[in-house]
Design a protein around this nucleic acid. Structure first.
Lengths: 108, 108
DNA sequence: TTCGATAAGTAGATTCGCTACATGTTGCCT
DNA sequence: AGGCAACATGTAGCGAATCTACTTATCGAA
């Protein structure tokens, strides 16, 4: 999968992963990897800045903790983040329809 | 639809539009608009540079003509472009599976 | 004769995912 | 004991592609 195919789609994906349970960065990476069937293996230089961006934008809130001697920053969805996620899901459906309307991927 | 959702997906869409008939830039814009149900209204500052990029990359070939006093540059798919389009369609399916695996857009 | 549609382009800004680097802990294997 | 994989977080700077805004030009209709 090409690098910048992700552009503009990563944010809702991150929000989706913490929708039902708060997770720390590393766990978010693992969740994305699992949910994508091993396809989405984000470099830390992508994920961590993205998380800070989402927090700065008010979609995530974070809290530090220490588990087994390791420091974790755990992120949870804010109510603004919930709205963002909902509209992100909707936008995805629109986007998918647009691409498939043009691409007609069923046809060889 | 957000601006950079398109990132990395525009190229195969352009190639798809000229798959069965060569078209000039303006007609490609219209075809994208039509096929996308009015959603994909590209600014010329996006489309024309993209076409030159695709030609430079060897996926499109162009030819000038004059129709009704207006100059047109008509683009057609090269054989490299055909391969690119085919793999682009395949990549789209992968990408869609990745996003939907993470997003689970059916769930509220 | 002005305006919308047709037609093609460039310059420059912005954004964000990437590579590469930096730091530190824990626990297993040899 | 030493080393290495996994766990955990982060920054600096690059590059590519889409965008806004602008330019130029023709044609037909109001």
């Amino acid at each position: 999968m090409k690098a910048d195919a992700l552009r503009g789609h990563l944010d809702p994906m991150i929000l989706a992963v913490v929708e039902h349970e708060p997770l720390h960065g590393y766990a978010i990476m693992e969740a994305l990897l699992t949910r994508s069937g091993g396809e989405l293996d984000l470099p830390t230089g992508t994920l961590y800045p993205a998380l800070r961006r989402l927090e700065r934008a008010g979609y995530l809130a974070s809290e530090w903790s220490t588990v087994g001697g390791r420091k974790r920053r755990t992120y949870q969805l804010t109510s603004a983040g919930q709205k963002m996620l909902a509209s992100g899901k909707q936008e995805w459906l629109t986007f998918r329809a647009v691409v498939e309307g043009v691409l007609r991927p069923g046809q060889a």
